[in-house]
Design a protein around this nucleic acid. Sequence first.
RNA 1: GGACCCGUAGCUCAGCUGGAUAGAGCGUCGCCCUCCGAAGGCGAAGGCCGAAGGUUCGAAUCCUUUCGGGUCCGCCA
Length: 600
Amino acid sequence: MSDNLFASYRARVVEALARIVPDLPAEVAARVEVTPTRDPAHGDMATNAALLAAKPARRRPAEIAAALAAELAGSDGVAAAVPAGPGFVNITLEPATLRGVLPAVLRAGAGYGDGAAGQGVMVNVEYVSANPTGPMHVGHCRGAVVGDALANLLTKAGFGVVKEYYVNDAGAQVAALAWATYWRYLQALGTPTGESDFVALVPGGLQYRGEYLVPVGAALADAHGASLAGPDGRPAAVPVWFDTVREFALGWMLRMIREDLLQLGVTHDVFTSEREILARGAADEAIARLDAAGLLYEGVLEPPKGKVMADWEARPQTLFRATRFGDDVDRPLRKSDGSNTYFANDIGYHGDKIARGASVVVDVLGADHGGYVSRMRSAVAAIAPFYAPGRPVAFEAVLCQIVHVIQNGQPVRMSKRAGTFVTLRDLLDEVGRDAVRFTMLTRKPDAQMEFDLDLAVAQTRDNPVFYVQYAHARCRSVLRAAAEMPGLGPVTREALAQVPLDSLDAEAELALLRRLAHWPRLVEAAALAREPHRIAFYLNDLAGDFHMLWNRGRDDATLRFLQAGQPESTRARLALVEGTATVIRSGLAVLGVEPVEEMR
RNA sequence: GGACCCGUAGCUCAGCUGGAUAGAGCGUCGCCCUCCGAAGGCGAAGGCCGAAGGUUCGAAUCCUUUCGGGUCCGCCA
């Protein structure tokens, strides 16, 4: 958009290049970049255009760079354009051009940086999707935050986004939940039942013995009395109670999860139930279509090597030819008893997402699902033509690696079985939503991370949450003080957007303006790379620029924002402060973190 | 046996999809408060980007091989 200084100068570069190399292939022109320079000595932006054009034009890069520099030097708002290095052209902007971003920021407000890069393409982002069998723990938290921030980021970049939660309410896990809840129910009725009474009965063993089901059992007893139990409070026949207990427990777990998510500030547009998807026949339909396309066969899989499988025996299963779509083995769709595998159901579900309009299907998954990605990608490639004829559909996975929680320099031991795992609620109580969210987003998702509880609440420089919020609070502090100053006039965003800015010429001020100019470009790049953590790093840098400028004012009184008796330059600086605060708020909004007014 | 992710400063991590002299915080050392918030800032030291080949104008980034760490590989979801 026109707010994006780099995009508009890129357009000029491409135009100028076309005059120098008239028959430049379009695919080469498409690779032209205009990027911020790393070294201020290289000016404000640099382009690789001459390097790219050299080969097809059969001319030396330096020669094209010189010609390009000459073209650009006369361009509006450009102070200098010089060839450099192996064939770059470095562009130095007029200070007035940099100052021009400020009114753009102030007029657009939170919308500054909103882009059209997404072109309205429909993206379905599925995240969290924790089994509805217990409270959320820290393991779920990273995916929740990453997915939520990614969805916000994509929206900001102009994609059409659906945030989705897939409720796995159909499998054996949920049956186990029902049994465990029933056990707690009988205990609530006063029946002396130990674990041993249930371990043998429950499919997969008594998996969910955590305390969190005690109130569920009690509530069930309140709602249904003894009507679900047999004589003397002994277990009744399964059909008597099973459906009732399962629904009750599922509803309870889902409410609990949604409350946890709400505490974390995570919301979804759509909750999709696996059972409803199955009842609608989605999996069967997908299987039938794959079959009709000749992509299924009955076969026998090799046993996995390097893994001990004592009870392995070869048996024929219905297999999907995933290898035709790049997977390394074909994948089973049916268990030996003929029922669908989870994968088969998931194919049906992904078909449903595509049928609902998604052209990009993003699954935010835990690292333990890494082996699942290639098979799902092949499945989507196989079924997309059925659900979206003629429309390209991409499957993407964002894998979130494990989070180790650290306290007092020691790893916090977690065991789900022992019930000592750290719940999401514990974490939020300990460090707060903003710190959890920001900290989780200061690493790229596919790197393992250590979450240091002490650092997340520290009020120091090395805690990026604090550092960024402190910068915002300082901005607000200056603006509050300005509102009390006589003779300044209104200092609202709207008023400051009109203010003359010529007095902004200190190096630290220009550095801050450059940073603000990067924001739209950064949003676009982060969205296209599906990397919300880049927003967090940008904010850290922006806060750094602001803190530096602030401290310059400590050393040199003429650089302070508020100058008594000089309303004009003071207003210009307030515009810069307000612009900084605006972009910080905008970035924090993507991350789902609250800006703070003051930190006393 | 195979697939995917990660190896970058003593530590925790960035590096904008191939660009110029590889960056930040912590830690270490030295500076800056009669002054809009010092809960900050400035400076110094610290690196052959796990290793070896390759691709090209140019590689931490792409390819191959290899060594470490993690995750996974039919009837869990």
